[in-house]
Nucleic acid binder design. Structure first.
Lengths: 210, 210
DNA sequence: GGCAGGATAACATATTTATGCGGTTGATTT
DNA sequence: AAATCAACCGCATAAATATGTTATCCTGCC
């Protein structure tokens, strides 16, 4: 038996969801609320398996509600419900620990599937949402432009620079003379087209060499 | 009619997939290949709607195959097939432009659904994969952990440091004495708990202060 | 009115860094 | 056998950086 809580400000939809789910084999709605004012206490008291959370609610919205829940409970599965596949909300919800993200227009049978999927550890998403997630993901990955072909040793040295080591410390760590460290670093600067330690560090971060 | 290409090195699975899909209403396998050696030409020649791409193949693997495809075609939907939900591969595939990612053990009817979903612009993912994607997503968004409450002026100075400016240059840019720059930087180091320029720069990148 | 804190500035000093030059060794390629 | 190149090391010097102490001015706050 899958036990649910529902948070949805629209009375019709709230009733509709409750009826639908209670009328289905293996599901039970413990309670349905019209706002998140007492979400922390309610979740603690009812101990549901899955929570349906509307995103667009007056007062405490769904994202904030989700955050409140996650402060006290990392186990319960939270399925976000929304009308639009709005980029910003999707991102926020996901990074706040939502387990799934589905549009309200999802057909009833599909919704029940999604709930089951969420409960069993999946991450149900409406197709349009999933696509967005992948897009965001791939857009933030700059596939490390240049290579600069640093030698192995030079890469090691750069690594130490990034970690804030001085020449002396690097020499110690690598069991070589400080002058050799200098040589390596000079070479690194040439290859990276920079002329100071901090520029090299910045470039290492920007170009994801580290 | 959904037209497909299949890339799969295992002969049994390749045949099995082909039979399954050709035996289903509305699907047609244009061709099935055992490696990606000529993937670019093949895709250009056959113009499929969807490509099923095995990840683990000898020679050119599925990820590299995908990249080759994306060099010449951004439209075709590519569905990655894999045995394991291996973290590294998932990330690579997604950021290389895969449209979906499903496990080989997916039941036939489900697979056909996924193909349809991919074709219509969705992003079909096996539950375990979707969960991983969400995890990666939320872990990489550490919404600027600390604040260090740098003053406005200090933030400006840090910005210049990150961009590789020397004290002298910063003094010039900000119309203040070099000793004042020193003062600011000393304060910044205290607040960031570091004691060198490059450490400050590294921290600025890590904590997304810039 | 006093107090805290940010922004400004000067002075001194030790350390680190950047850059130049030179060199040896050993592995790989041609 | 000659050439190339990464890795190693030394010396010298100028510039930049790190650290300390001190002090003024202004603004917001109780």
């Amino acid at each position: 038996m899958t036990k649910l809580l529902i948070y949805e400000d629209n009375p019709q939809l709230r009733e509709g969801l409750t009826m639908l789910i209670n009328g289905s084999e293996g599901f039970e709605v413990l309670a349905a609320f019209k706002n998140c004012n007492n979400v922390t206490e309610e979740v603690s008291a009812w101990k549901p398996d899955v929570i349906l959370m509307d995103i667009d609610m007056p007062g405490i919205n769904g994202i904030e509600g989700l955050k409140k829940i996650r402060q006290v409970n990392d186990e319960v599965k939270v399925l976000m419900l929304t009308v639009f596949d709005d980029n910003k909300n999707v991102f926020q919800a996901i990074s706040s620990g939502a387990n799934g993200y589905v549009l309200k227009k999802t057909p009833p049978t599909k919704l029940l599937e999604y709930i089951k999927e969420a409960q069993s550890g999946g991450a149900p998403m409406t197709a349009s949402i999933a696509t967005q997630v992948l897009k965001m993901f791939s857009s933030m990955n700059n596939e490390k432009g240049e290579d600069y072909n640093l030698s192995d040793r030079e890469k090691q040295v750069l690594q130490f620079l990034v970690e804030g080591y001085s020449y002396k410390m690097i020499a110690n760590e690598m069991f070589i003379a400080i002058d050799t460290v200098r040589s390596h670093i000079k070479k690194i600067y040439e290859k990276l087209h920079v002329n100071s330690k901090s520029e090299a560090v910045a470039k290492a971060f920007k170009d994801k060499l580290v």
